[in-house]
Amino acid sequence: MTDALRFVDITEDQLEAVIRIRSRSFGPLAASAREEWIKDAIEFIQDGRYVGVMAGDELAAAARIWDFKQWWGGNQVPMAGIAGVVVSPEYRGRGVGSKLMRGVLQRSVDKGFPLSALYPATTVIYRHLGYEFGGGRYRFSFPAADLRTLGGKDVSIRRAGPEDAERILALVAQAHTAGRTSGMLAWPVAKVAEWLEDDENFAYLAEDGFVVYLWDDSDLRVDELVALSENTARALWATVGSGSSIARNVKAFISPSDPVHYLVEHEADKHTQIQRWMLRLLDAPAAIAARGFAPGASLEVDLELEDSELASNTGRWHLSVADGSGTLTPSTATGDALRLGARGLAALYAGTPLAALRGAGLASGGSTGSDGPVDTAFAGASPYMLDFF
């Protein structure tokens, strides 16, 4: 079977076949969403970011590659977001998914992405290909009445529209740089303008913050809230909470360490929704060079990397971190090195402590005395994402 499989670029005349496979994987595509889905798909096709696997003359699988930037340690890093991975039922368990994803990895490398991330439908295939958990998408729920009383009435707030997209992106960049955020996606200004133009979204802008929220059945849902001061945070959350006469709860996609957890009197609902996403390094030296590291951290350590899918990552390397930046350069040292596979490297990049990686068999060797400095260099707030792709 695998000898007859071919990795291909999806063409426009194959989109109907993709839709048929998609319906068997995720359920039928709503008629109202069809036109927009095809429009988006054509953009991916034109940029060589919609790929598939042919079994003879039949399309058996497909996947999209998003052109993203992702914040890591307060820096933006180019990231290939893998989405819409579908395999026709009759071809599952026959190597088609692996053929597809190996092609996706190489295409992402060819496009110059140092990182890749995805939301897994199953972790098995992705772990075999070097992905590991990088962070989560968290949705908390708060009583709307609690938010309403947070104050901030002295803060001036106005409605925001598409013309405010650049200002909102500037606030996002300021917040994520200062907070050394990891995991969040960075969107282009045109996409943010579309988001703000959607009549279903309610957007409000202050001097140093903004909020975008909407109705979610009988509740309200915050898609994003950024505030650079306590008073603005209070004012924006109170604005959302002002709907408490109708909405009992406010669902919010936020970080586990968002200040609102410490502002409200009552804790968030215990039934928090968490979606885990996975990370993979495609170009280890470029990924390290682009990432931000803990200020004041100083590190010199040899790594022995083993990547069965991307040979360019395999080998002996020297990791150096200073002044918030890092480099990964080839090394000829002969001493014992910290040994990591692709999964262990991805988890370390995302800030997972080495003790956990050693306990899971994802790290070995080196000096345990250097584990502390390594952990310190990669440390930061828990990586999180607001978007599902």
Rank of each mutant, 00 (worst) to 15 (best):
V86R: 04
P114R: 02
Y204C: 04
G179M: 15
P143F: 10
T181Y: 15
V96E: 03
I168A: 11
F133Y: 06
E197G: 02
H176I: 13
Q174L: 11
F202S: 05
L129M: 13
E90S: 13
S156H: 04
K111G: 06
T177C: 07
G84F: 08
T123C: 09
E207G: 04
N201E: 10
G103S: 06
D198R: 14
A145Q: 12
P120F: 08
P143M: 00
Y204T: 02
P89S: 04
L115C: 13
D164F: 04
G183N: 03
R92S: 04
I157Y: 07
R148I: 05
M184R: 12
A145Y: 01
G179R: 14
L147Q: 12
E163Q: 01
F113A: 01
F140M: 06
S98F: 09
R158H: 05
L129I: 06
G112M: 10
K99H: 12
I168E: 07
E132G: 15
F142L: 07
A190Y: 10
R102H: 14
S108I: 08
W195D: 15
I125D: 15
G135Q: 03
G103F: 08
R159S: 02
E194A: 12
G136P: 02
H176K: 15
T122W: 15
F202Y: 14
R94C: 06
